[in-house]
């Protein structure tokens, strides 16, 4: 495997940069597409042994409770696989809407943009290593 890899096979392309997978959800997204991303991404984490996933949602102008629930589920699945996931780029209007609606998203690791998301991923991985050393 080379260091950078793009696999356009599925509906939404998943990029691999080193040990990190990057997925960007964009535009008018339907339920089927979100669910396909969920299964594709978990399969890719297992296949590539990625230690981190960046889920970029900056291209989504609305996130309803269904889409939000699948995003939260993707993060939970990625963690179960032993990897870390960070959701980046939630639009301010979307954040306001989700909080007002009462969708539970507070437990997710989030960052303003992909760059800060990478920094956060590095920190989460380091915390993981520290913890396993202590055990």
């Amino acid at each position: 495997m080379s260091d950078i890899e793009a696999r356009p096979a599925g509906v939404v392309p998943i990029m691999r940069i080193g040990a990190t997978l990057l997925v960007a959800l964009q535009g008018e997204i339907d339920d089927t597409t979100v669910l396909q991303v969920e299964s594709q991404l978990t399969a890719e984490v297992a296949r590539t042994h990625a230690t981190g996933v960046l889920l970029d949602v900056s291209g989504l102008s609305i996130v309803d409770s269904f889409i939000a629930r699948v995003i939260a589920r993707i993060v939970a699945m990625v963690r179960l696989l032993g990897s870390e996931a960070v959701v980046v780029g939630i639009q301010p209007a979307v954040a306001i809407t989700l909080v007002e609606m009462g969708v539970p998203m507070g437990h997710l690791d989030t960052a303003l943009n992909a760059e800060q998301g990478m920094v956060l991923l590095r920190r989460l991985r380091r915390a993981d290593v520290d913890q396993s050393r202590r055990l």
Binding site: S61, D64, Q91, A93, V94, I96, T97
Partner: peptide, 13 residues
Amino acid sequence: LVDQTKLVTAGSE
């Protein structure tokens, strides 16, 4: 923009 987003989200639900 925020009100647009709220309306569209409610409509989607």
